[in-house]
């Protein structure tokens, strides 16, 4: 390697490093504040790492706050939404990709239309609809709303994955003796695992961090999800940053675990269709 090439490689790596540092810095700060004892939080000035660390905030959040409830609620809502949306979007995406039916054009148009409005506009009508049904202040209500808002995009996502799978495969399976549904389940679905992982991940994180509807539809602590719960660390006179950050760190764990679990498929999924075969 010539000196020039080494230089360009070093510069390249440094640039990547700088970008990663920039992207991860807020997360680092979250972690740093969460382990800084209260007494040092305002007294030490701005330091990269506190002179003394403690897990007092974590202890408080886990033992003395409602955070475990928020956490459980979030897990239920995000998990159910992700699964329901993925199942619906797989079936709908397959139909969009493979079948021609009357009104298909209008269904696609309608689905696109739902993506065009700012969600804030819809808060009041949705509240009006859910309230008489007893679905405000309930996790089920949240799951329904999240599912409704995520299905269109997830359907388009899944459709693009199905479009990438040659029709010949299911025709071959049907000639081999499968019904269309068996061909879908045994041949097409296994090949769409990357797409399913991508959809699951996308919907899970969207629901996990959703604040607007959760804030508007949920009032008590019993059914609050964790983004709403975080606000409970904000009182009228002060913000308990240490506890809030500790809760934030804990909230990151399931999202990280989830992505760790699906990342093998996700990487395939995001690049699927880029090259043939």
């Amino acid at each position: 390697m010539t000196g020039k090439r080494i230089l360009s490689v070093v510069a390249h790596r440094l640039a990547i490093l700088a970008y990663v540092a920039f992207a991860l810095f807020p997360l680092y700060w979250l972690l740093k504040v969460s382990v800084t004892p209260n007494k040092l939080l305002y007294s030490e000035g701005i330091r990269m790492w506190p002179s003394q660390t403690s897990f007092e905030h974590f202890e408080f959040v886990l033992k003395h706050s409602d955070f475990p409830v928020f956490f459980k609620n979030s897990l239920i809502v995000s998990g159910s939404t992700a699964i329901i949306v993925t199942v619906l979007a797989s079936l709908a995406g397959y139909a969009m990709s493979r079948f021609n039916f009357r009104g298909k054009y209008w269904i696609v148009t309608l689905m696109l239309l739902t993506q065009m409005f700012p969600l804030v506009m819809l808060v009041a009508p949705i509240f009006k609809i859910l309230s008489p049904l007893g679905l405000t202040n309930s996790l089920t209500g949240l799951v329904i709303v999240y599912t409704a808002f995520n299905v269109p995009f997830a359907t388009f996502l899944m459709q693009s994955f199905f479009d990438g799978i040659p029709k010949d495969l299911e025709e071959a399976a049907m000639i081999d003796g499968a019904t269309q549904f068996v061909a879908f389940r045994q041949i097409i679905l296994p090949l769409t695992l990357p797409g399913i992982a991508a959809t699951l991940g996308f919907v899970f994180t969207a629901a996990w961090s959703e604040l607007l509807f959760s804030l508007m539809l949920i009032s008590g602590n019993d059914a609050a999800t964790f983004p709403v719960g975080l606000l409970s660390f904000v009182s009228k006179f002060s913000v308990d940053f240490g506890q809030m950050m500790a809760a934030g760190v804990l909230a990151l764990i399931p999202a990280c675990l989830f992505f760790l679990l699906i990342q093998r498929y996700l990487v395939q999924g995001l690049t699927a269709g880029a090259v043939k075969g």
Binding site: D168, E171, A172, I175, G177, T179, I187
Partner: peptide
């Protein structure tokens, strides 16, 4: 349905299950 016709088919793309 194709499955009830008891025929076999070889496709141009081979259509092997990957």
């Amino acid at each position: 349905a194709p499955k009830d016709r008891d025929i076999a088919m070889v496709f141009q793309s081979y259509a092997l299950y990957p």
